[in-house]
């Protein structure tokens, strides 16, 4: 176990160096902040134009917080799966990682930590900007912190599992590694109700949203942060917080098992087919 933790720690340090040492700290900070804030600003402008700046509406809190916490999805999932591409295609070191005495899944999850950290800073800045400039209906004094932290931790574990699943698939493909991660993130963005209540989706698409753990994760985060405001939306109003936690735990465990199985299968296939040191230049 100690060896696995050491692998995780060293991989996290390595990931941080790769993510941050390409420029000076100031430019890195700007880079880490500008993208998510600009993404949030698009929604703010869209919302502001149509509602003539009614930022005190519960719908704005729903959209804004969903979008802010969705930053974790790209950060954690892509952080883990991208490590395969970085090490295999760019640095050409994946083969050395594989022959060293480390557990590859722990290494890959460790590599995702850097993006998790930058993602956390982006989420905090986005939420703070909402509080300071956009009248976001969030009172830090009334936040259910225990529920918030529990949901956040559970969600990050769930996202790490999804990242590992994608990393497994990435081991087998030469093409489309950019696109598959992006497709999954975009599909989850659309179907999880991150930026609009699921009731807006056509009836036949809603079941997809209900099958995704992210839907319940985002709902729990909103309920922990803005309480009754989030519960006002009909999509999941029939579920209590305990039920939502139960569903999220169940789906996280389910996806965790699925990710482990898929990663093991893909890992085995990649070894058998000699894909570990594949360089496609694609």
């Amino acid at each position: 176990m100690l060896g696995r933790l050491r692998t995780f720690r060293i991989a996290a340090w390595l990931g941080w160096q790769i993510e941050s040492n390409w420029t000076d700290p100031f430019l890195f900070a700007v880079y880490s902040i500008v993208k998510p804030v600009a993404g949030a600003a698009i929604l703010v402008v869209m919302y502001g134009v149509i509602t003539r700046g009614d930022f005190s509406s519960p719908l704005f809190s729903y959209i804004y917080l969903g979008n802010a916490f969705y930053i974790y999805v790209g950060a954690v999932m892509a952080g883990i799966s991208w490590a395969v591409i970085d090490d295999r295609e760019h640095y050409k070191t994946l083969k050395y990682i594989y022959i060293s005495p480390v557990r590859v899944p722990f290494y890959l999850v460790g590599r995702g930590v850097a993006r998790f950290l930058t993602g956390t800073i982006s989420v905090m800045i986005t939420v703070m900007a909402g509080l300071l400039f956009l009248n976001l209906q969030l009172d830090l004094g009334t936040v259910n912190w225990l529920m918030f932290i529990s949901a956040l931790v559970l969600g990050v574990v769930m996202l790490a599992n999804l990242g590992l699943l994608l990393a497994g698939v990435t081991l087998l493909i030469a093409h489309h590694f950019f696109l598959i991660g992006e497709a999954v993130a975009s599909a989850l963005y659309l179907f999880s109700g991150a930026i609009f209540p699921l009731d807006v989706l056509p009836d036949w698409l809603r079941p997809v949203g209900f099958a995704i753990p992210l839907t319940y994760w985002l709902e729990l985060l909103r309920r922990a942060l803005v309480g009754n405001v989030a519960e006002a939306f009909p999509t999941l109003s029939n579920f209590s917080n305990t039920q939502l936690f139960g569903i999220l735990v169940g789906l996280t465990v389910g996806f965790g098992l699925l990710s482990t199985l898929i990663f093991r299968w893909c890992d085995h296939q990649a070894r058998e087919r000699g894909l570990i040191d594949m360089v496609t230049n694609y």
Partner: peptide, 18 residues
């Protein structure tokens, strides 16, 4: 991929009654 993004923003506009 662009169609997924387009759909998400279309549904945002529909949610806020644009």
């Amino acid at each position: 991929l662009p169609f997924l993004s387009v759909s998400a923003y279309v549904f945002v506009y529909r949610a806020i009654g644009a």
